[in-house]
């Protein structure tokens, strides 16, 4: 299951000046998987399933339009930031948005710090936050599940916890390649940015080591 904001996916997008349209298959696939594994997220959106939420990670060149419709959910990347197409906007640093997605950071705490900006219909944002918090989206597991043949050994590594940071950075590279390399030329500058984001992700994982026990 790949959440729409999988750090890998987002990092890849930050790195390469991909036309938004080229991301669409990956985004749709990701949303399909999350829709299958976490149907309750969409169910919890209740009367707001038809709402459009612009999720705008300020450190990425993209924003995302999410329609959390339980029957036909949509996640569309846009290079411009079509605020006028959205009922609500959530804007903030990528890592804060990831924290919110994973339920690692208390929603209210983030919500009410100036880190996160909210525009438009506050109720839609609250609904999304509550729905996502209830879903137990687990990025590490999500990333690993993408790796097919690597998944087995990777899980063992995660259990030792110490390797999480290095693993994440290796996986990041692998996945970025897998997703985007075929259509992109690589540049050193991009590599440097990739390393920066890897480090950030490493920090993030350190902070999550004390996660709850595995789901039974």
């Amino acid at each position: 299951m790949t959440p729409p904001f999988s750090p890998v996916l987002l990092a890849g997008m930050a790195l390469y000046p991909v036309p938004a349209a080229m991301l669409q298959p990956a985004l749709s696939a990701a949303l399909l998987i999350i829709h299958r594994s976490h149907p309750d997220v969409f169910e919890r959106m209740g009367e707001f399933t038809g709402s459009v939420i612009l999720i705008d990670p300020i450190d990425l060149p993209y924003a995302f339009l999410l329609t959390p419709d339980g029957r036909a959910p949509k996640l569309v990347a846009a290079r411009n930031h079509p605020t006028n197409e959205a009922d609500a906007v959530i804007r903030g640093p990528l890592l804060s948005l990831l924290d919110m997605l994973e339920g690692r950071l208390d929603g209210d705490a983030m919500f009410f710090s100036r880190k996160l900006e909210i525009e438009g219909d506050t109720e839609v944002v609250v609904a999304l936050r509550n729905a996502v918090d209830g879903a137990e989206i687990d990025l590490t597991a999500d990333i690993l599940s993408l790796f097919g043949p690597f998944a087995g050994p990777a899980r063992v590594a995660v259990k030792t916890a110490n390797h999480v940071a290095s693993l994440a950075s290796r996986d990041l590279q692998t996945l970025a390649d897998a997703l985007l390399a075929p259509s992109m030329a690589r540049h050193d500058a991009h590599d440097a940015r990739l390393r920066k984001i890897s480090d950030k992700l490493g920090d993030m994982d350190k902070r999550t080591r004390k996660r709850r026990p595995e789901k039974s």
Partner: peptide, 10 residues
Amino acid sequence: RQRGRAYVAA
């Protein structure tokens, strides 16, 4: 009850 599970756990 309106707070996230990070709050609840901690």
